[in-house]
């Protein structure tokens, strides 16, 4: 017996037996919430198109990506027209992101070498936290380190010409990351990730500033809100009752709530946005869509 044969024998002996049937059941269990989430997103997307259309029709302010640090995105330049290439920043976090992205290019087949992946940062630091907002639910900017391994699914959601990817993490929840890209004009597409469900290419959705109830998985509801540039705090309430607050990252807040908080049949979710002085600068409402699948 050769060395290779002996090693192979020993390692095979070491590896455990695997219950494929149980594995298949668990995979099906993982897939089911994603299917529900897709149906929910599709419904929301239809509504979004209508809202967006009406918004433009009445001359609503068009929100454009702003790359200043205060606006919540660090690094690159994004012009008012779709850039052919992204001007990547110098050494630092973003340079690591770039190197990281290039390293993955061969796997995805949809990425262009030279694109930058930018990490989101918090918006302006609040001078005060208004009272009565509920508990703090921090949203941490995604940390890119040498050990960071981006989930493949995140890259699978890339669309070739969208230049900015932002990743964040909600503290103390199963929502470990999220992603959205900014494109011109005035559109942001959030994509929940990690929790077993992810929208594939072309399945993401564009929105304008406002609330998005997404990521319904089991009893957990993920609520995204795209907030104004100068947002320092976003606070979420259900049926008028304060639940939690956080500092948005890269113009987005992500709240993860227990469905048990939704006490009424069709609860109204309200996200109130404050600037650094504690002044309300925006408020968005969305009725939680309870459907037969939920």
């Amino acid at each position: 017996m050769t060395t290779d044969d002996r090693i192979r024998h020993v390692l095979h002996d070491l590896a455990p037996s695997v219950d494929e049937q149980e594995g298949w059941k668990r995979i099906q269990a993982r897939i089911a919430p994603a299917r529900r989430r897709r149906r929910l997103a599709a419904t929301a997307a239809v509504a979004a198109v209508g809202v967006l259309f009406v918004g433009f029709a009445i001359g609503a302010r068009v929100w454009r990506p702003d790359t200043s640090d205060a606006a919540g995105i660090t690094g690159s330049t994004v012009t008012s027209t779709m850039p052919a290439t992204v001007e990547c920043p110098g050494p630092g976090v973003d340079a690591q992101n770039l190197a990281y992205l290039e390293a993955w290019t061969s796997l995805t087949g949809s990425l262009r070498t030279g694109q930058c992946v930018l990490a989101g940062v918090h918006g302006p630091e609040p001078e005060m936290i208004p009272g009565g907002l509920g508990d703090g639910m921090p949203l941490y900017p995604f940390e890119i380190t040498d050990d960071t391994v981006l989930p493949y699914g995140v890259l699978a959601t890339y669309v070739d010409d969208y230049p900015i990817i932002h990743l964040g993490r909600v503290a103390d929840t199963d929502v470990h990351g999220f992603l959205y890209w900014v494109r011109d004009p005035a559109a942001v597409g959030p994509t929940p990730d990690i929790g077993g469900a992810l929208f594939g290419p072309g399945e993401t959705m564009a929105s304008h500033p406002g609330v998005w109830v997404m990521g319904v998985e089991g009893q957990t509801i993920t609520i995204y809100t795209v907030v104004p540039d100068n947002a320092a705090i976003a606070a979420i309430g259900i049926d008028g009752k304060a639940q939690a607050w956080q500092r948005p990252v890269a113009k987005a807040s992500v709240f993860v709530l227990d469905e048990a908080m939704m006490e009424s049949v069709e609860p109204v979710i309200t996200v109130t946005v404050f600037d650094r002085t504690g002044t309300v600068i925006a408020q968005y409402e969305e009725r939680y869509p309870v459907g037969p699948d939920l």
Binding site: G23, I31, A197, G200
Partner: peptide, 17 residues
């Protein structure tokens, strides 16, 4: 098992691609 199951689940969700 978690890692492999998640991988298969993701593959299933975007199998058309």
């Amino acid at each position: 098992e978690d890692a492999v199951q998640e991988a298969f689940a993701q593959a299933h969700l975007r199998w058309s691609k």
